[in-house]
Design a protein around this nucleic acid. Structure first.
Lengths: 163, 163
DNA sequence: CAGGTTTAGTTGAGATATCAACAATTGCCG
DNA sequence: CGGCAATTGTTGATATCTCAACTAAACCTG
C-alpha cells in the first residue's frame, strides 16, 4: 500500500475520529435526556420517541412496524414497549381496516397531554447540549452530511438491516 | 414571543433536523455493525468497545471506571459485561497497586486475537456505511463540530450526568 | 489520627431487551 | 383458484441492563 490514504481497506484517522465524536455526542445527549426525564418524574425517552412519532403522524396513528424505532428496537421489543405505554393509557391499539394482520397504534388524549409535558424538557435539554453547541448554519451542514447515512435505503449488494 | 427564531425556548428546525439525522445515522451504523459481528459468529459490539479501549490503553490495562462505556452503560452493567468477557477468557481482572479498592482489567492474548478478528469487520462496516459517505475534509468538519458536545466536561450549573 | 464523606466495584431484585417459534394474513405465481 | 413464500404482531424462554443497597478503601478535615 503506497500511502496512508488507501480507500478500500483503510479508513482515515479523520473518519474514525468523526465516528468516535458522533458516538460521544450521541451518548452524552441521550444521557442528558434520560436524566432530565427521570428527574421530572416523566416516562423514559423511549416513550417520548413513540408519542412524538404518533403525534407527527397523520391521524395520530401508526403501524408498529413504522414506528421508526424499528431501527433501534426489535419487533418484540416494540410489542412490549407498546404494552407498557398502552397500560399507562397513552396509546390505544385498534384493528387496521386495510390489513387485518396488522393494527394501528393511536395516541390518546392522555398521551397528547404527556407529550406536551415532555416536549419542553426534551427541547430544553437538546438546546442545552446538542443544539446549543452549533449555529443554524452548522446544523444545516451537519444534517446534510448525516442524512446521507441515516435511515435511507441502502444499496449494499446483499444484506438486510436485521436479518 | 415575537418571532419563530427565539433563542432560549425554541430550537430551530434545522437543529432538530440535525439531531434526528444524527440519531438515524447512529442507529443505522450500530445496526450494521451488530449484524456483521453476528453473521461472522463474533462477540457483540459491546465487547469490541471494551477490547478496543484496552488495546489502545497503555499496558493494555484500564480501570472499569475509565472504560469509557461509562457514558453508555451503568456501573453494574459494566461489572457484568466484564464478567462475561472474562468468562470467555478475553480479559483478566487484577488487583490495582495504587488503589486497593479498584482493579485493573487487562487484555489477554486471546483477547488480542479476538480483537484482531473483529477489527477488519468493524472497519469494513464503518467504511461501507458511515465513513464511506464522506470525504476526509467533511469528516474533519464533522468531528470538529461534534467534539464540542461529546464526552467533554460540561459546565452546566447543577446536574451530574448520572445522578 | 478519628470521623464523616466520597469513590470503586459487586450483588440481588426487578425491569427491559432479544431470539426463536408461532398464528394469522397477505401476496405472488402458476 | 390453490399453494408456497413473505409479512405482521405476539409469546415463552432467556440474556442483558438498571436501581438500590452494600463493602471496602481512599480522601478530606479538624
Amino acid at each position: 500500500m503506497p500511502s496512508d490514504t488507501a480507500q478500500k481497506d483503510e479508513i482515515s484517522e479523520q473518519r474514525i475520529a468523526a465516528w468516535r465524536a458522533l458516538l460521544s455526542a450521541h451518548a452524552a445527549q441521550v444521557a442528558r435526556l434520560t436524566v432530565a426525564f427521570a428527574e421530572a418524574d416523566l416516562p423514559p425517552l423511549s416513550w417520548y420517541d413513540v408519542l412524538r412519532a404518533l403525534d407527527d403522524a397523520p391521524q395520530h396513528a401508526m403501524r408498529p412496524r413504522d414506528l421508526g424505532c424499528g431501527v433501534t428496537i426489535s419487533r418484540s421489543g416494540m410489542t412490549r414497549l407498546l404494552d407498557r405505554i398502552e397500560d399507562a393509557g397513552l396509546v390505544e391499539r385498534r384493528a387496521c381496516d386495510t390489513d387485518r394482520r396488522g393494527l394501528l397504534v393511536i395516541l390518546t388524549e392522555a398521551g397528547e397531554r404527556t407529550l406536551r409535558e415532555m416536549s419542553p424538557i426534551y427541547e430544553g435539554e437538546l438546546g442545552a447540549g446538542f443544539a446549543g453547541a452549533m449555529s443554524d448554519e452548522e446544523a444545516k451542514t451537519l444534517a446534510g452530511l448525516l442524512e446521507r447515512i441515516g435511515g435511507e435505503a441502502e444499496s449494499d449488494p446483499a444484506g438486510e438491516p436485521a436479518r
